[in-house]
Structure formats: structure tokens, C-alpha cells
Amino acid sequence: MTKVSMTVNGEAAEGEAEGRTLLVEFLREELGLTGTHVGCDTSQCGACVVHVDGRAVKACTMFALEAEGAEVRTIEGMANADGSLNVVQQAFQDHHGLQCGFCTPGMVMSAAALLDETPRPSEAEIRDYLEGNICRCTGYHNIVKAVLAASGQDAERIAAE
């Protein structure tokens, strides 16, 4: 076991990891941050997406020791300072961008990364960016609406298909 330290949601975090310990295992089991989900564990589904040094990554396909010294942000760090939902989370609730909710942490983290890069994305850009996040409930339509709304755009303009 090796000692590893990083900043998680703005706070110093430290723990022990083997070489093979995945970042998602470290977050969930060592730090108790179980908001980051493991869906497929094969880097297909995106339920485990977190931000490492400001970029979206799949925490099931990165080792904890690779995050030594990094700034990590998880779904637990997304709410506003007063505990209320942030703009992306609130938009998911308002537009029913989730049903079972299993994929939602990864969806929110990917959506937030998209809006960092592209503050007013088109519907096509949203669908393209969320390609690596799989949802088996919603059919994606309301997720796309939520991201449009979170970016301050008219979510109703995309027609239901």
C-alpha cells in the first residue's frame, strides 16, 4: 500500500492505495464518497465520471495513484455553498432528467464539464458530448433539455420525438 494525497471537493484528502486501486474505488471505499457510481466498470457507461484537474474523466479507468496531488471534484462537491442544488442539478430536477438516478452523478459531471468548455452548447453538441454517458431510463431527451436549460437556453424549443 502506498500513501496517496489529493484535493477532493476543495479539501485535502489522504488515504492508502495499491497500484491497482482505481480512483473510483479510492473515492468510494477509502473516502466514503459513494455518490460516484460504478456502472459498467469497463469505461463505457460514464456513471463514474469525475473531474480531475478540471477535466472530465472516467474514475473507473484511472488509478488512484495517478491522481496524486490532483484536484478532484465529485458529485458531492457540486451543490452550492448553502447546500442547495447547483444550476445543472436543479435543471435535471426541473426537467425530469433522471428516473432511477443511477447514471445521474456522471451525467451531471459530464454536463458541467461541457458547460465549462462550451457555455451555450447546441442540442447536437450536448448529445455528442454525452456520448460516453449511458442512461437506460430517460431516452436522453429530458437530459438534453436539462443541459440546455442549465446553459440559460430555451429547453422547450427541442421538440419531443
Binding site: S43, G46, K58, A113, E131, G132
Partner: peptide, 9 residues
């Protein structure tokens, strides 16, 4: 290639 998260790594 892949998806955005894959391209970041």
C-alpha cells in the same frame, strides 16, 4: 476518438 472523458486521458 471514444468520448470526451476518454479523450481527456
Amino acid at each position: 476518438i471514444g468520448d470526451p472523458a476518454v479523450r481527456n486521458r
